[in-house]
Each structure stands twice: as structure tokens, then as C-alpha cells.
Design a protein around this nucleic acid. Structure first.
Lengths: 131, 131
DNA sequence: AGTTCATATTGCCATATAGTCATATAGCTA
DNA sequence: TAGCTATATGACTATATGGCAATATGAACT
């Protein structure tokens, strides 16, 4: 795993499957349970051919299963693991936002304190006072 | 997170950054610590322009930091979280392989037992013996 | 200033792929 | 069989992007 190009390629490919908004939408619509193509289309607003293609990719990558049933075809999540991944990433992203706003607050605070002290600033390691 | 298109888009974009072999290679080469572009080139075998581009993407996505130092520029992982993601996916993939070989064995076993016992087989729920 | 080295950027080409339309396939039903 | 519906597939366009070569930028040194 540490550097094996073959393994890395597989990991990259797995991420690639999850790196498209439409496919994530399809997966989310399947989160509540097995659905056929028409239902997925309705829930996601994607075109029919488009949904079929994405489902094919998802099935080939082993994330969903395909079971024809009469004239329609039902798809189902077989690797709920992907939702864990999505959640982890989502959490990380929201943590980022939180940290950013935190830093903004700190900057704001700094700006105030310096403007209050107004007149001392570090230059080249020495504290130089001016005006 | 459940269906918010904006959040989903961000998640997809995050996965997209990780969905390229070259970028994963760059990240892996940074796993052992801060490196400059030349060092990354040497370790990954990627071209210079290529490495620069990938590093730009990684920096913009907030995964690595960029610190010029003299004439060279050092990059460093700021989100080790990505390695957790990669490991999770890698583990999942190897579990798959394991399950597949397991199933192959079972099929193999079935084939053998049927040919060895040669004469009993379940048909429509009943055990029927023949010859 | 001019040279050299490390990195960034630009232009170009080849490839991949999302989306759409049209068509094919396949299972129902009359 | 014919017709209908659901899904899959093929053709096509537009777009994105990885890689490469050439060039630009920028820092250090003489």
C-alpha cells in the first residue's frame, strides 16, 4: 500500500468513481433502499441514459448490485462503506470551515489589539517603535 | 449532507483530487516528510511541470502547504487525514479480493463434492438420487 | 548586471468522459 | 404478433485534464 503503483491505481480508480456529483446523487438516492432506474431519475432529476451509464459504472466498480425484475431493473447499495467515506470527507470539510472562521476571529482580535497599541511593530526581530 | 448538492459537490471535488495516480504518488512521497519539487520528481519519476501542477492542485485543495525556502519550494502534508481515506479504501479493496477468492473456493468445493458424491443433488428443494 | 538553478506557467496535443439524442433490446400485455 | 414500457447502448458534442516542451519567473551568487 505504501507505494505499490498497482494498489495506488486501484485506490485512485475507486476515488474516481466517487468524484462525480451525479454519481454521488445516484448513490444518495439509493441510500434509503433498492430503486429502479425510473425512480432514481425522478429523485435525482438526471436523464435516463445518463443514469443508466452511471449505474453501470457503479455496478462495475462493485458498489451497487443490479437485479432485473420484470421490465425494470433494481439497483441496490452493496457497499455502504462509501457513505462512511463521504461522511468522513464531509466532516473534514466542515472542520475546515470551522477552523477558518476561528482564524478570522483571531485575526480580527489581533487587528484590534494592534490598532489599540498602535505604535509598536516587530521588524527583523527587533521591536521598533515609531511615531 | 444527506442530499445538499453544494455539500455533495465539495465532497466530489475532494475525491477528484485523490482520484489521480500521479497525485497519490506525490502525496505518498510527502508522507515521510516535507520535500521540495526536485525531490518529489526524483521519488516519483514524474516530470517537473507535471509535479508543479499537481502540487498546485494539492495546495489549492488545502491538502499540502507550500513554503518557499531560498530558491526551492518545500511542500508538506497538512491533512494526514487523506492517508486514512486511502487506507480505508485499500483495506476495502483487499477485503473484496479475499471474499472473491473465498467464493471461488466454495464454488470449487461445490463442484468437487457434487462430482465425488456423484449421485445426490438437490432439485427444487427435494433431494433426488439418480444413478 | 549576468549567470545559474529551482519552480511556475503557458501552449499544445491526446485522451477521457459527462450529457444528450436516437436507437436497440428486452420483458410485459392485449 | 404487435404494441408498450423500461432500460441499455451507440453516436456525437462539449469540456476537462494529464503530460510534455518551451518559456517565464525568481532567488541566490559572482
Amino acid at each position: 500500500m505504501t507505494f505499490n503503483p498497482a494498489a495506488l491505481t486501484q485506490v485512485a480508480d475507486y476515488f474516481k468513481v466517487l468524484s462525480e456529483l451525479s454519481r454521488l446523487q445516484v448513490l444518495c438516492s439509493l441510500k434509503s433502499g433498492s430503486k429502479n432506474v425510473t425512480e432514481i431519475m425522478e429523485q435525482t432529476g438526471l436523464g435516463q441514459a445518463n443514469v443508466s451509464k452511471h449505474l453501470k459504472i457503479l455496478a462495475q466498480s462493485g458498489i451497487v448490485s443490479r437485479t432485473p425484475q420484470g421490465v425494470s431493473v433494481y439497483y441496490e447499495i452493496v457497499e455502504p462503506f462509501i457513505f462512511d467515506l463521504c461522511e468522513l470527507v464531509g466532516d473534514r470539510l466542515s472542520i475546515r470551515l470551522q477552523e477558518q472562521s476561528q482564524q478570522l476571529k483571531q485575526l480580527e482580535g489581533l487587528r484590534q489589539s494592534t490598532s489599540i497599541k498602535a505604535g509598536t511593530r516587530k521588524i527583523k526581530g527587533k521591536t521598533k517603535s515609531y511615531a
